[in-house]
């Protein structure tokens, strides 16, 4: 799948059922969602509402039970995966940012970021060049040779964002990326995500409970009992 052709993500009637028969649980009951390139949307909901299940379906980590998902022009799921190599789909088209940065502890900052393009078959020098460009953009280039354990929480999260962006994916899924951070750093992370979404035309979905950042989204998807509904956010200034 050529990355230039993929723009944004669209989900229609996505369902996910765990188990069978009397014990079956419907975690998602028909989720509709659309995120355009360059847009950052919030996905909020109480515990057990289906946020993590939706994120796993979007991340091609678990298979939905029904529905349709489109990445740019390409349908990747239509009541069944339309893509053979989900691992390559994740590597090339979906970036992940987690609640904790989960950097690889035995790789330095540059190689943590450069690992993805290396896995995609790019040369070490090209991968490191890309990594350094992003680290520069995220203002952590001065820690390029540091090990993850030597970074502050904010720096680690910025490196994680660089890792999510390095293969220029059309979609980034961020799972509570600001949870461990104080207000100032949390807002800084959201500011960075917005900048990167604009700069790389990336659609970013931020799953969060964080009251500090919810007002910053232009659009918010609420998820409750496996269904989503959309509402306009406050779009509070990040400056």
């Amino acid at each position: 799948m050529a990355e230039r052709h993929i723009q944004g993500i669209r989900i229609e009637g996505l369902r996910k059922r765990y188990g069978e028969g009397d014990t079956a649980v419907d975690a998602l009951k028909g989720v509709d969602m659309q995120v355009a390139p360059g847009e950052v949307v919030g996905l909020i909901g109480p515990s057990g509402s289906g946020k993590s299940t939706l994120l796993k379906c979007l991340g091609a980590v678990i298979e939905p039970s029904a529905g349709r998902m489109t990445l740019g022009q390409e349908v990747i799921y239509d009541d069944g995966w339309q893509i053979g190599d989900l691992r390559a789909l994740r590597r090339d088209n979906i970036g992940f940012v987690f609640q904790a940065p989960y950097l690889i502890p035995f790789l330095d900052v540059t190689d943590n970021v450069a690992l993805l393009p290396m896995l995609a078959g790019r040369s070490n020098s090209e991968s490191r060049r890309r990594a350094l460009e992003l680290l520069e953009a995220l203002d952590v280039a001065h820690r390029a040779r540091a090990m993850p354990s030597e970074l502050s929480g904010g720096e680690q999260q910025r490196v994680a964002i660089a890792r999510a962006l390095v293969n220029r994916p059309p979609v980034i899924l961020a799972d509570e990326p600001t949870a461990p951070l104080d207000s100032e750093r949390a807002l800084a992370v959201i500011r960075i995500l917005n900048q990167m979404a604009q700069q790389f035309s990336t659609a970013i979905i931020v799953v969060t409970h964080d009251e500090k950042i919810i007002p910053t989204f232009r659009r918010i998807y609420h998820i409750r009992d496996g269904r989503t509904h959309e509402e306009a956010g406050e779009a509070k200034s990040l400056e």
């Binding site: 691992r87 590597r91 992940f96 993805l116 896995l119 995609a120």
Partner: peptide, 16 residues
């Protein structure tokens, strides 16, 4: 285990 899960999530092959 967590690092391996992350590696698999970001597309690392099983053989790697």
């Amino acid at each position: 285990i967590r690092e391996i899960a992350v590696l698999k999530l970001i597309g690392t092959r099983n053989r790697t």
